[in-house]
Design a protein around this nucleic acid. Structure first.
Lengths: 131, 131, 131, 131
DNA sequence: GTGGTCTAGACCACC
DNA sequence: GTGGTCTAGACCACC
């Protein structure tokens, strides 16, 4: 899977990496159980620091998206993905709220907002985990 | 309008303030043309530094949500709110993408995702700018 | 002559007033010797502070664009306008330099830059002092 | 590149700094991709506060003249410079208008005015971005 | 080491 | 009184 890091973004690199791996899982580019490159090799490929990759991997593990084995390295969660519990929906709402508020201020109604969401779903929807 | 700042949050205070004012506009708690408290008084009320409030106000002005008059203080944009142009939708998609990806990984389908959005729209929708 | 003050501009009101009166002279809307409204009446018309108008008038007098008489009030310089001496050209260059620099950075060449200047000259050029 | 700050000037320090960096880019003294001194070191060199430098850098970034990398520091925009769109020409006209008006009042015709512009173009033109 | 955020406190222009 | 600018100094995330 192709990963693109934008060094001049104000988004921390480890967050970009985290997001792109989650997006890879969502799109099916990364399948459950699939091995991920080692911290060392991914850092080398992307030209970034070992610690940065390590931080992204650690966070992915903490949220249940990947597993990390001392010897075998990292792999996409082969078992059940983390579930969408109340905590998840709580956080989701918290992160969505400012986006919705800005959209409302600019006159974007619910239908158009959901169209954007739908477009994203379709972008990911080709062969993803839910397929 | 009640504003609550979480000093422990990892979200910068000025961002929290920015978001809450935008949410106030979206909900109608802040009406177009309504005056906002002065930088000094709001800072005192919230127990934060006036520069932090100033930074939030400056950003709100840059994005067109408020006007700042050098000696009369700040007011909610009385004229047309910033429009939802291509740039806005581009940024919106960029900010929505990781949320959608995480939702997909957890098995949340488009319908349920849009339900969350819809709930937020209804939260804001009572007497908001579009009403 | 119509004067428009933008209260939400970051340009001080007295500067806006100064500029618009100079522009009125340049365009011929204000003729040499023509009387200007009193500080008091102009302030009332524009809904701004007396001192603000006073400051603009004082500056216009200091630079030779108008005369102020205790009894008769203010009038457009009836005699020779301030001349374009070395000091003037020095200041002009200083104020033009950042504009030219920004234009160059954006790939605007001298010809196009001067076209903009020429357009402004033509805007003013109908019946102005040089006509 | 030599930067000179006039602490007595009524022009804010961060604006002086902004302008001089833009002028450095226009003249070619600062090349695309070239690294700029860190906020701290430039502040120390100029004997001003690091926040003042930070404000200038932030504004330069917002207008697309430089990039800021969170840990590598700032560099002159290596890619395409911000383009001269309608917004730019609108602002340019607004800033040029009072200069042209004053020039007209003093009997400076379009030809002489453009000669001054041309002289500035030639000052910058030796090895600049357009060269 | 780098920029980002926050605080405390000062002075200024404007009106 | 209002926002704008500047300083000094601190802590933080990132890498």
């Amino acid at each position: 899977m192709l990963i693109r890091i934008d060094l001049q973004s104000d988004e921390p690199i480890y967050v970009q990496l985290f997001n792109q791996i989650v997006e890879g899982i969502a799109s099916g580019a990364l399948r459950p159980g699939e091995t991920l490159p080692s911290v060392r090799s991914l850092a080398a490929d992307l030209g970034i620091n070992l610690h940065t990759v390590g931080k992204a991997y650690t966070q992915l593990r903490q949220e249940g998206y990947i597993q990390i084995h001392r010897q075998k390295g990292a792999l996409v969660q082969p078992g059940p993905m983390p579930e969408a519990d109340g905590e998840f929906f709580g956080k989701l709402e918290k992160r969505l709220r400012p986006l919705v508020a800005e959209a409302i201020c600019r006159g974007v109604d619910e239908r158009r907002f959901c169209e954007v969401c739908g477009r994203l779903y379709r972008q990911f929807g080709k062969g993803g985990v839910g397929a």
